[in-house]
């Protein structure tokens, strides 16, 4: 009789009130902690599209993409033409960039933001130290020069 009563109470508890589960969906920033986790080479089309998005914060237009690809297909040395694409994009009006003064005033913040933007990961201590020193030692360096260095690196060709 005691067992039967306990079972009844347990069933009552389980069925009486059910906590409402609230599902929240959001996108948290996910940083790749190490560059070694990028093992896939971007296709050239992906590379051009992503480079444009990273610099301008918007998708490349079909017209601009076609112009870049026409040039890309016109030159046999693809590394050379990719470099030309990057350097030409970096001088176009409309790219989102820090000022040189901001970069000089707070190199760490600039380096963190730049690594997150182009490498989609945090800069490690060594990188922060290396780029911080370079920025302090070379007053003529512009933010777009640092962007160029990152965009020319092997890591930027991978995802």
């Amino acid at each position: 009789m005691k067992t039967l009563l306990s079972t009844f109470i347990l069933l009552l508890l389980l069925s009486s009130c059910k906590k409402e589960i609230e599902n929240v969906y959001a996108i948290d920033p996910v940083y790749v902690s190490q560059s070694g986790q990028k093992n896939n080479l971007k296709s050239d089309l992906q590379f051009v599209s992503i480079a444009y998005s990273d610099l301008f914060g918007q998708q490349i237009s079909v017209q601009e993409l076609n112009a870049l690809l026409a040039g890309y297909n016109s030159v046999g040395d693809k590394a050379l033409v990719i470099d030309l694409i990057i350097r030409n994009l970096l001088v176009k009006p409309g790219i989102i960039k820090s000022t040189q003064q901001d970069m000089q005033n707070d190199p760490d913040a600039f380096i963190d933001a730049t690594f997150e933007r182009f490498f989609v990961r945090e800069a490690n201590e060594m990188e922060r130290w290396y780029f911080g020193n370079s920025i302090k030692a070379n007053s003529q360096l512009l933010p777009e020069d640092i962007y160029y260095a990152l965009m020319s690196a092997e890591e930027y060709r991978h995802y």
Partner: peptide, 9 residues
């Protein structure tokens, strides 16, 4: 940067 990159390809 390339020296520290360990990705493949």
């Amino acid at each position: 940067l390339n020296g520290g990159f360990k990705g493949s390809g």
